[in-house]
Amino acid sequence: MDTKPSHNDLPWELLVQALQGELSPDENQRFREWLALSEENRMQYEQLQRIWKDGMGDYVFYREANEAKGWEALRESMGERDVFQGGMGEGKSGEEERMDEGEERVRVGDEHGRVVMFRRWMAAAAVLLLAVGAGWWYLSGRGADMQYETAAGEQRTISLADGSRVVLNGQARIRIGKDYDKTDRTVTLAGGVAFFEVAHQAQRPFTVDAGVISIKDIGTSFTVARTKDSIKVMVSEGKIAFIEKETAASREMTAGDSICFYIAERRVRELRTRFDNAPLPAVIAALQRMSGKRIVLADAALAEKKLTVHLAGESFEDALKTVCASLNLEYKVVNEEYILYPRK
C-alpha cells in the first residue's frame, strides 16, 4: 500500500550537510556520486530542498496566525460599522437567549425589507476586548517610562510622539523612556523582534538600546531581533550605525545589510549582500536565500569564477542580470530553475 521508498535508506548525513551548504570536499564528492546514481535520488533530494527552502518560507507567518485574535478583530470592525446584522449568535439556545436580557435591541428594516438587528452591547464588548487584548503597558516605578509587551502571535504597532513607528512582533518587549523626544530618542528593546520606522531628526538621533549593542539611526527603517544569545539587525531603508557599546566600535549599515551579533563571543557575522571577489557559488547561495528561487550552474567550471557585486535593493532578476553581466554569462529558466551558462 505504501509505495513511498523508505526514507531510512537515504544518506541523511550527506543530505543534511548538502542542504545546509556544509559539505566538505570529500562529502561533496560522495554526495555528487549519490545524486548521479539515479533519477530517483535526484528527485528525493529536490523534494527535500523544496521542504527546506520554498516550503518553509511562510512558517514565520504561520506562527503569527491566530484565529481567535482575528475573530476579535472581525467582530470589532463589524461593530464599528454600525451595520452589525443581528444573528451572530442567533443560533443560541433558549438558555443563552435569556442571559441576553439586559441587552438593547433595535429593530430596523433595511432596504430589502429584511429585518436586521443592531446590538449596541456588541460594540461596547469589542472595545473592552480591544483594551484587554492589546497587550499591556504600565507606568514604571521611576515615573513615566512606558513598557510594551506583546503576547505570542500578537503584533502591535506603537506610534511615538515624534511620528516614528515601532512594530512589535510576538513576545517582544520594549521600553520607552519618559524623556523620549525631549532630551533624546532612545527605545530599549529588552527582547524579541521589532521593526522601527524612524522620523528623521538631525539634532536628535534615534537610538535602539539592545543591551551590549546600540543601533543609531541616520534616518531610516530597520528591524532588530534580540534573543538572549544574539542580536540581529537588518536595514530596510536608509542608514544606521551599529555600535558595540563596550568597545564603542561602530559600523555603518545601509539598506539591505544584515548583521548578526553573538553576545557571548562578541562576534559579528554579516548576512551578506555585498561580495568582494567572492566565488560565484557563494553569491548564488545568497541570491537563492533571498529570493527562494533555484539557480543552477550549467557547467561545473563556473563554480571557480569570482566576482564583486552588491545585491541589495535589486529585484531578483536584476540581481541575476548583474551577476551574469559581470561574468559574461547568460541565464534561462527551465522548470522554474534559473540556469546559468557561458555566453556564446
Binding site: R50, D54, G55, G57, V60, F61, N169, F195, T223, M234, S236, S258, M290, S291, G292, K293, F316, N335, E336
Partner: peptide
C-alpha cells in the same frame, strides 16, 4: 513542485 510565485520574500519578517 511549487510554483515560481512562491519564491517571494521580504527579509524583514
Amino acid at each position: 513542485s511549487l510554483p515560481v510565485w512562491m519564491g517571494v520574500i521580504i527579509l524583514k519578517y
